[in-house]
Design a protein around this nucleic acid. Sequence first.
DNA 1: AATGAATGAGACTTCATTCAT
DNA 2: AATGAATGAAGTCTCATTCAT
Lengths: 198, 198, 198, 198
Amino acid sequence: MPRLSDQQREARREQILTAALHCVARQGFHKTSMAEVISASGLSAGAVYGYFRGKAELIAALADRSIGMVSPALDEAIAADPPPSIPEVLRRAAAAIEELAAAADVDVTRVATAAWAEAARDETVRALVAERITGLREKYAEFLRRRRDLGELEADVDVDAAAQVMLATMPGFIIQRLVVGDVDSESLARGAHGLGLR
Amino acid sequence: MPRLSDQQREARREQILTAALHCVARQGFHKTSMAEVISASGLSAGAVYGYFRGKAELIAALADRSIGMVSPALDEAIAADPPPSIPEVLRRAAAAIEELAAAADVDVTRVATAAWAEAARDETVRALVAERITGLREKYAEFLRRRRDLGELEADVDVDAAAQVMLATMPGFIIQRLVVGDVDSESLARGAHGLGLR
Amino acid sequence: MPRLSDQQREARREQILTAALHCVARQGFHKTSMAEVISASGLSAGAVYGYFRGKAELIAALADRSIGMVSPALDEAIAADPPPSIPEVLRRAAAAIEELAAAADVDVTRVATAAWAEAARDETVRALVAERITGLREKYAEFLRRRRDLGELEADVDVDAAAQVMLATMPGFIIQRLVVGDVDSESLARGAHGLGLR
Amino acid sequence: MPRLSDQQREARREQILTAALHCVARQGFHKTSMAEVISASGLSAGAVYGYFRGKAELIAALADRSIGMVSPALDEAIAADPPPSIPEVLRRAAAAIEELAAAADVDVTRVATAAWAEAARDETVRALVAERITGLREKYAEFLRRRRDLGELEADVDVDAAAQVMLATMPGFIIQRLVVGDVDSESLARGAHGLGLR
DNA sequence: AATGAATGAGACTTCATTCAT
DNA sequence: AATGAATGAAGTCTCATTCAT
């Protein structure tokens, strides 16, 4: 076989990541065996190891991706002009997550859950997830600045702390959704409104 | 040999759980081997298996306990009379978590993180964690009812949805704390206040 | 099972080493798989790994032992009083090696051959083999000192250098024996005599 | 594509063998992977397999070469006229080995060591090494005949047995040199002299 | 002729669990 | 009740070799 183009290589990598995402969504990182990923990817063991040095590297890529997938969805919710109310943004973010969870027969939120746990014990994953979280928070901060500049938040608001709080709701939303199953984007928005957020 | 008293049995169980908590806080559920737990507990393999049917049962007990440990801390925060402001309750809850995390050379929040992930893939754990979450939410709901009755929330507020939102902040707080490391109870309260919560 | 006595442990270790010696004599260290050793030993994989941390440790033990097995045989040859002639000692040493090679359906000289090669690439094995070689050389030196004191060697002979030379003949004897097959203890002694050694 | 000239083919073969020699000197035959040889040779996998049927053939070629490299060095030592004393010939042979070991950033003596071990377990390699050994011994025999004819050895000396002994010292010299590190051509000659060789 | 990605058997090792003592 | 040695299935990864291009 001649040398693969970068594009072809990327496609194969994608193929493996997608297959792995399926497995991990069902069983978590450490109950998913490489054999399962290999079989699901349709490639051979050797081929998979040609794209990922080992399970750790694959886990890191999946952790990064699972959390990264939320980002574009959030962008949309936040970019709207004029900036929606806080409950509305939370609703949109949650709705994006719901959509993500329902999409393509893989529930990425399950993988995200595994990613948080992995971040707590693996420095490489921690750094990747930290980067993602920081990125997401910056989006919320940007949104809040726009609301503040419109006079809908106090002028001296600590935008970064407020962004931390807004982002903080998402893991809890995801967990309650997966584990208890009685929350959705509407209830989240209603609850936020009920607490007095505007 | 003489049957152990219930009290002795309970002490042994505790000994095992404490040892396991140490291991899991460092390595997560699935990177912690039974051999490690056995060695850390100071008991023999056979003894440990006399108290827990297998690793799954041990994991379930640890997941339950790790999340359960937050509950008493929250009680205090919420029970105060008159009911504190929402940012203040969040601050107290977060402070309780900080204390828990710092205590006794085991950071239970790391175990909680593993518990959420496990809940997403194991029905038994899911049920236990769901129960815990529901219990915690009920505490928040109770708190919110008292605030409502004092006229500090609108009369028709959906208390359960609002409790979902309050609880939802905790996992996000824990994760940001472990992974990014730049949040604390003060920033959480400040952010909540900045968003307009009272 | 209750704790094994040191003696029982030692017996098991021996059982594994003996099985491994068989395999290695036929296939060398690196073509012998742990599965083969495990199967030949009659134990389970886990049991074998309870006695040796890994293949490297097993190899080191085998290398050490294979070279160590020559030592007692040499002792006898050298201890004789009055000290035999040099060709005679070489003959006896070679005869001891022949006996060793024929014994117990394992040809240890094949393992020794593998041990020399391994010593050239693994520091741990190198150190062990170096120790063994030094020990053997000291025996030859002792023998030579006795000959010298009897006036059968010049008074100012460099005993250690001479011992190096005597020992040096053994690997070459073993290799020619295994590879060409036309040398034996008699031809070695005859050759030594022919070269003028007395 | 145009057929390569024999000369080009030979150059490529050489390139591969040289690269492989490097790898094997460091890691032995079986810890050297084809991938390493391929990468070190600068060719592609397919190309390498165009010159050697497989790893076994490559090993055989390396074994043959590593032992063969001693031969020309020995020739010189032996050809001198009048024939030097036995200690002197041993010194020259050992000095030739020292030079070989120091040359060109590959220590061939390490490969020779691997070759002996391989000869003990692979019939093809055994035959090749046997041939080499026989050839070397014949050179020693020739040398001894000349010494005998000069009256410096007894007339009825078993020249072949004596050649076996002379050759036998070389592996032991190489091993002690690599493993213990305290022998050199001078100590070898001194020791031989001390034992009474002339 | 050459390339190098892909193959897949098999290597080493771990580990949850059992059970003879 | 307790012990801890033993089990053996299963996990991760490597590597000699092939063959489509």
